[in-house]
Each structure stands twice: as C-alpha cells, then as structure tokens.
Design a protein around this nucleic acid. Sequence first.
DNA 1: GTCTATATCCCGATAGAC
DNA 2: GTCTATCGGGATATAGAC
Lengths: 222, 222
Amino acid sequence: MSRTRSEPPGKGGRYHHGDLRTALVDAAIELIAERGLRRFSLAEASRRVGVTVAAPYRHFADRDALLAAVAVRALQVFAAMLEDEAGGARRPERRLAAMARAYVRFAAEQRPLFETLYSSGIDKRRYPELKRAYEPVDAFHALVTDVCAGDPEAADALGGALEATAHGHAALLVDGEYGRGPKAVRSAADRAERATLALIEGRKALQRASSPPRRSPARRSG
Amino acid sequence: MSRTRSEPPGKGGRYHHGDLRTALVDAAIELIAERGLRRFSLAEASRRVGVTVAAPYRHFADRDALLAAVAVRALQVFAAMLEDEAGGARRPERRLAAMARAYVRFAAEQRPLFETLYSSGIDKRRYPELKRAYEPVDAFHALVTDVCAGDPEAADALGGALEATAHGHAALLVDGEYGRGPKAVRSAADRAERATLALIEGRKALQRASSPPRRSPARRSG
DNA sequence: GTCTATATCCCGATAGAC
DNA sequence: GTCTATCGGGATATAGAC
C-alpha cells in the first residue's frame, strides 16, 4: 500500500531495491501488527519485501536495530498525534488532558508501534537516533512548566505524575485490562484525561512529604 | 538454592526429576533475570535443570505455558509484597499509598516476574490458572471501596486511576525512564505514593465530565 | 507417566561471490 | 547491495526406553 517495490525478484532474479531500509521498517510494522512483537522475524520481513534474509544486514546491524528504527517511527507518529489532539485546546490544562487522551489513543490505534516502543526489550541507550527522536515529546514538558509557572520542582513532580498516569492507562489498555473493543479505548482515554485534570488540580499534594525522609530523623509532622 | 534436584544426569544417565515442573519455573525465572525475557529459551532452561529439550513438554504445552506458570508465581509474590508493605498502615488512604510503593518495588526487585506478567506477550485469557491468581490482588479494590464508602462509581473511577498510576510508575521505571540505580527506585516509589495520595484527595475531580459526551449534543458548560 | 533420542523446520548471523 | 552458502541454536513433534 504505502511501500515502493520495484519488481519482485522472481526466482533467482537479481534486483536492487529502491529503499530497502524503509521497506523493511514498513514490513516490520505490518508483521508486528499481524503476529505480535514476539513472533516477528527478520527473515519473514525480508521475504515480504522480496529480498533474501541476508540483505537486511546491509542496513541494520541486527534484528534489534530494525526494531529501533521502528521505535523511531513510533515516536514520530506519537508526536504527530500529540500535537494533533492537543491543538484544539487553548488552556495548558486542557492541552495536557488532550495529550493524555492522545497517549491512550496512540497505544490503541498504533499498537505495534506502542509495543515496539515499550515492550520490545531493545536497549534504548544503544541507539542515539532513538534518543533524538524523543525531543518532539518535550512540548509536553513545556506545557507542564507553563502550568507550574516559576516552580521547577513542582513542574518535575507534576510532569512525572502525568506521564506515568497516561502511560499506565495506555499500558493496561493494551494489556487487555479494560477489555478489548473501541468502548474500552474510549473508557481508558476518558479515565486518563480525568486523572490528568485531577492531578493538575491537586498538584500541591504531589510535593508534600508522604513518607519519612531516608536520612535525617526529621521532626516534621508525619 | 531453592531447587530440589536429586542428582545430575551426567552423560547418558537416566533419572527422574523430583519436580520438573517447579524446577523449570525456577530456572526460567533465573534465566529471564540473567538474559531478559526476549532471550529466554525453553531449551536453555531444560539444559540448566538437566533434562533434554523434549522433557518440558510433559508439563507445559509450549514455551508460553511455562511463561504463564511464571506469571502465576509472579502474582503470588506480588500479592505477598502488597500485603507486607500495606500491613503497617492503618488508614485506608495510607494503605493504598503503601500499595503503590509496593507496586513499584515489585517491579524493581522482581523485574523478571514483573516483565513476565506485563511484557511477555502471553495471552492471559488462555490460562485460567492465571485468571485465578489475580484474586489476591482484590484486597486493593476492597480498600478503594472503603475509601469511597457507599459510592461504587466513585470507587471504580478512583480504583482505575490508582492502578494505572502505580502501573505507569512501575513500567516507566523498569523501562529506564527514571534511570537505573536504587535512587531511581526510591524516587519512583515516592512519586507513585504521592500521586496516589493526591488522587485520593482529589478524587471528586475524577468523576467530573471532562469532555463532551459521545452521543447527545449535551448543553452543559464546557 | 516421565524422560531420552532424534529429526524437521525456522531463525539470526557471517563470509564470500557477483 | 544483494545473493548463495553455511553454521549454530531454538521450538516442536514423535518414537521408544524404563
């Protein structure tokens, strides 16, 4: 559909692929969608684009490197969805709530991408391109800073809570915790949005000491 | 350490394992801890226990079935940690906060179990024993109901938010989002606990309509 | 009923020819 | 850049020893 394939190699035919790298990423996403991350194989992806199993190694060091490329794609799509969904809202609180919805929707509508990003077991530290791809998501942190105007510690606390909450809803949804159909998706998105608004509203509580500090005997009430 | 092994089979030696099923589960957990979920193999587990690769199939239908057994073990450990950590607190709010800490600690200290439970890709619907193993965790829901005395809808909303938030912190921690060392674990546990308390405190906001309803034109403000 | 032995097929990865 | 050939390993299935 979206792949550019010049001509299938037939049997014993020799041919150069237009953009094997991209084609492999596309095929990988298709395959992961069909069979799940665990049953995805480099060999099958190669077959699907019409090259031998050795060909991918000119473009990717190994199977993980291909998955890392899929993860980069995932982050691009994710960033686009975030921007798209949050674009309609004016106040930062609403924008953050919309982002939480987008987070959940991304997980549901782009499940192979979401899974590759968070459950593929690739070591993200090993792929600098992947690190770079995270930057567009920083719009989120800018909004949080905005909401917590002038208090970086508050922004840190709130940002962490919002991220974790959105991620939790998305992950549990994909895990099947809320059921499967589109109803489950809407429900999870609603819950994520409300939890986001609730956390923003009650953000002061995020910075209160909630357990005794680790070192000093600390004489505060608690 | 905790495994009962009668006598290594040596070469060509023939022997019956005391409890191959349990031994395989133990070996699987060890292996997942050492190599990660993705590189875990039934063959290597078999080798480690001292049986041939075909032996496990007397006890498990396939690789996934063994992972499901690991998941059951995971839920037992998880339930024990929840109970243990929440035992010290009296008020239900504190108990729930302690549970959030336990959730994060479980993910960090029992990473192979946590990963098997949430990232192994096994279809939980296919393993009734796994469904049954979830029951001990229901102490959590009882507490939430307690906090929201008399309002089942509120309990549902709050319970979902708390679960997602705890899970989100745990998942992002395991994912490396907060760094790696023990400092990251404490930090994540603190954040999860505070978010829990904040959500309990601001739970009314979880039930407010936060986006226009799906069907009717709805003339309410917003 | 539990395990061994064995065989098939698929996958990941590498080396060298074109 | 891609193919051919090849190696090692893992998932399964089956037959047979005890």
